[in-house]
Design a protein around this nucleic acid. Structure first.
Length: 314
RNA sequence: CGCGGGGUGGAGCAGCCUGGUAGCUCGUUGGGCUCAUAACCCAAAGGUCAGAGGUUCAAAUCCUCUCCCCGCAA
């Protein structure tokens, strides 16, 4: 079978690697154009592009999906299947109908729940204890295609979007290869989604990282886990921005105003929330690197009653 | 050349503006107290102040260049 793979970030890499090890032949790869990133606004390749170059496979990086030159190249590859994992662009009907055996997508949730670009993050933010991978036959909607295979995994209390994502990505690779194998054998019957059960998981934005201290401690803790490592949960101590990487709710009622520091222990900074106390255990202060709360406290004496707020205050 | 912040004993920081004996919190080591301890008390070890050049009687501190790190922005 001739497979074309479309994907972009780290999440897509295990799927591509799994295909490369399978019996099928990856005849071409599509990924997003190099983007300026990092400090000097240098152009850098997507993780998928790095693999493509290592394997010396044909690679396309279209700026527009409807670019005729891109379409011509793609159809010239004559794929039987197109496999898609976190590609980051909507595929137009012309591409969806190009491969005779269809386009298969690897999605990081148990569809129809958490359709969209941020399924892993939203599952954690909402406090789910289980999520999974769904492979599906793509159609024109956003993650609305018929389900092929599905496998669940538990979400651990200490999971962040980062740790969960890497486990799901590995599972995705396995499931993708399995899905293609079963499709070839014709033993797999696509199952339409129950659209009434659908929920949306939109892409997170920078602003979603702002911590609202008036929420309950457990809700804030889940948000922090879901926002780590990107876009990162943050708050402000006066003018300085704190990135919060790890925090756990304490079994303790809050008696101060939300956002006030109520105690400094050996390894945590306690903050009052709308309901309960949250213990900050790992943070990154302004201009510093990520560090345990204990280290921060060693060099920055805090005082009880100091106020954390959603925006900088002088 | 996109903007800004930083590199000081093992860790996190102060000192730099207003040059002149290296400071704080934590950790480490030894001792003490204690039924006991991650707690407390006492003591000790540990730093070419990122690197190079310059100014000066004298540079962590002022000037120039290099390297590395961090945030914003993407």
């Amino acid at each position: 079978m001739r497979i074309v793979f479309m994907g972009t970030p780290e999440f897509a890499v295990p799927s591509l690697e799994a295909l490369l090890k399978s019996d099928d032949r990856v005849v071409g790869i599509v990924t997003q154009p190099d983007r300026p990133r990092g400090r000097g606004q240098r152009l850098s390749p997507s993780p998928v592009k790095v693999i493509a170059q290592r394997e010396q496979l044909p690679l396309l990086q279209p700026t527009k999906m409807k670019d005729p030159a891109f379409m011509a190249e793609l159809s010239g590859w004559k794929p039987d299947f197109i496999a898609v994992a976190a590609f980051g662009r909507i595929l137009p009907p012309a591409i969806l109908s190009l491969p005779p055996r269809g386009c298969v997508n690897v999605h990081g949730s148990l569809l129809p729940k958490y359709r969209g670009a941020g399924p892993i993050q939203w599952a954690i933010i909402n406090g789910e204890t289980e999520t999974g991978i769904t492979t599906m036959l793509m159609d024109e909607g956003m993650d609305t295609g018929a389900i092929l295979l599905q496998e669940a995994i538990p979400i651990a209390p200490e999971d962040t979007a980062g740790s969960l994502s890497s486990r799901l990505a590995d599972l995705g690779g396995r499931l993708l290869v399995e899905t293609l194998a079963q499709l070839k054998m014709g033993t797999l019957i696509p199952r339409p989604q129950d659209h009434a059960q659908a929920s949306l998981a939109p892409l997170l934005k920078k602003e979603d990282g702002v911590i609202d201290w008036s929420l309950p401690a457990t809700i804030i803790a889940n948000r922090i886990r879901g926002l780590t490592p990107w876009p990162g949960a943050h708050t402000f101590l006066q003018a300085d921005r704190w990135m919060i990487y790890r925090a756990t709710p304490m079994d303790e009622a809050a008696t101060s105003a939300p956002g006030q520091i109520t105690a400094m222990t050996k390894d945590a900074i306690h903050v009052a929330t709308g309901q309960g106390v949250l213990a900050i255990r790992e943070l990154q202060p302004a201009n510093g690197r990520r560090m345990p709360a204990a280290q921060y406290l060693a060099g920055h004496p805090l005082q009880i009653g100091m106020q954390l707020s959603p925006s900088p205050r002088l």
